[in-house]
């Protein structure tokens, strides 16, 4: 199988790794690079657990060819926390927006993209932004509330 080098930026750091022919970005990030934040849910773009940002735009990494990130910026939930967790992560904790936690990295990335584009979204815009992400445990309400907490300045700054 042909291997192809891919150089890209992952969470602000330069990365280079080999990808196999036809390898998807999710597999490349988890197995090739070792970033386990994006999760494998359905493998067919139906659940959003694998959501990452490509140049700031949410993408389903299970449906993205790894070689297409050459020279681009990839952001995953691993990059959200610096010395401390980010305000969005803090809001997710405060609101109990995770139970089993499997959807959480995808939810965080969908919300991160929304807040970067629209720092003051209303409830309908939040719902629209996370409507591609399935959560089995929380009933969504705590997730919506957590994102609105950040949008409306109730957490972080």
């Amino acid at each position: 199988m042909a291997m192809k080098p891919v150089t890209f930026t992952l969470n602000g750091l330069a990365k280079a790794a080999f990808t196999e022919d036809g390898q998807n970005l999710l597999d490349f990030l988890r197995r090739g690079v070792g970033d386990m934040a994006p999760k494998y849910g359905c493998g067919q773009g139906g659940c959003g657990a694998c959501t990452v940002l490509l140049d700031g735009v949410p993408h389903l990494s299970c449906l993205t060819l790894a070689e297409t990130v050459e020279g681009r910026r990839v952001d995953t939930a691993s990059g959200l926390a610096g010395a401390t967790i980010s305000p969005l992560q803090e809001a997710f904790m405060d609101r109990f927006a995770a139970q089993c936690g499997y959807c959480t990295p995808g939810m965080l990335m969908a919300a991160t993209a929304l807040l970067a584009k629209n720092p003051r979204p209303n409830r309908d815009e939040v719902i629209e932004a996370i409507s591609g992400n399935i959560c089995r445990c929380t009933g969504y309400e705590p997730i919506i509330a957590a994102i609105l907490d950040v949008a409306e300045g109730r957490v972080g700054a």
Partner: peptide, 17 residues
């Protein structure tokens, strides 16, 4: 066979509880 056919309410289908 997948999430297109297995329906669940999404974040836009919530009822106040």
């Amino acid at each position: 066979v997948d999430f297109n056919g297995y329906l669940m309410p999404g974040p836009g289908d919530l009822a106040p509880h």
